[in-house]
Write a protein that binds this DNA or RNA. Structure first.
Lengths: 197, 197
DNA sequence: CGAATACGTTACCGAGCGTACCGTTATTCG
DNA sequence: CGAATAACGGTACGCTCGGTAACGTATTCG
């Protein structure tokens, strides 16, 4: 059964351009005109593609939105900087850059709504969240091993404490977080989980 | 212009029961069957009410969802307990009680989606958020005046740090927060903004 | 009583999701 | 080279849902 999908059988192969054009169209429509403008017909028209071509790639609208959101949040990787505080700033700044891209709030809102409405995309969504928080967990564990993070902190709780404020500011408070806020967070979180000053 | 709405003119008065029944129906449908089950026809049927009766009270579905969500988050009020740490726990525990009510994640997801889709409900939503975070700001300011919260913390940033993790755990991580998590948060946040131990 | 307004019922329109079918095109297998 | 397979664009359709219109009925104020 292995990676049998790679070797293709008979028949016309999929045009790779279609996939990219559709995902771009989704993000563009969301950013420019909001969630309600993201209709399947509008996406097809914007991408210069037929509607059936979309449905051959994704089973439904929710899956499409999830796929589009995934292109926004790449895998973040922070190298060992020898200092928890510095790595914390790196994580927060990297996230800040993503959240400051116009339309990100709408993309995430669409994602949440899609997941809440459609249990079928839950699995993929959970992997997405794990990947998002993975690097934060890593720097916390590295800090504990190094000794500049308190050994008694719950890593999962702390990871949520790190990830939550920027997202909350963006989605719930409906404001784009700025560098000052990220810096304040770094100060407070460092005191919250740091072992010493 | 005053409160002219109170004194009613001619005509049949609105049946008060309808408003409550509709809001309850919205919350029930969301909790039991998810966001997609909340159709105007389903709400009307569940409430034992006609669809036009709903539209006489709210201009559209988004406003209705906002109104339903508002019934969930009441005005939280924490008395002066003489200690920031104790007041922080009180706030977190109160929010925890609300978030543990089944269906709250769906209610909030619907709320976010509604706001993101419909700019008209933004104003009401912002008042809703302010009310939600107001008490947290108060206890922070009280703590600063009292001296057990650092004078150099940005109150708004700190309020976000307090409010965000529970919501993030519920909506983004898709898990109901528990008492242990709230306790861990209280520990970490107290270290983050407290002036001394 | 008459004006005004809420009520339920029914019907309807437009938009949107998802599918079916078509003829065409590209690729693999024999 | 020919047959089978499958993607492509285009079109049309069925269905559900949000929102409105048009009734007749009930209730309250003046």
């Amino acid at each position: 059964m292995a990676g049998a999908r790679v070797e293709r059988g008979p028949g016309r192969p999929r045009h790779e351009h279609v996939t990219g054009a559709v995902l771009s169209a989704v993000l563009e429509l969301m950013t420019e005109q909001g969630l309600s403008a993201v209709t399947m017909d509008a996406v097809a028209a914007r991408a210069g593609v037929s509607k059936p071509a979309i449905y051959r790639r994704w089973p439904g609208k929710h899956d499409l939105i999830l796929a589009a959101a995934e292109t926004r949040i790449g895998v973040l990787s922070v190298p060992d900087l020898g200092d928890f505080r510095a790595e914390l700033r790196a994580v927060l700044d990297a996230r800040l850059d993503v959240y400051r891209i116009p339309g990100t709030a709408r993309v995430m809102a669409g994602l949440i709504a899609a997941v809440e409405e459609d249990g079928a995309v839950r699995g993929a969504y959970e992997r997405y969240v794990s990947r998002t928080m993975g690097e934060t967990r890593k720097i916390l564990e590295r800090g504990i091993a190094r000794g500049d993070v308190r050994a008694d902190v719950d890593v999962r709780a702390a990871a949520t404490l790190v990830a939550a404020p920027l997202v909350y500011r963006l989605m719930i408070e409906q404001q784009v977080p700025d560098a000052r806020f990220a810096a304040d967070l770094a100060d407070m979180i460092a005191r919250a989980v740091g072992s010493r000053a």
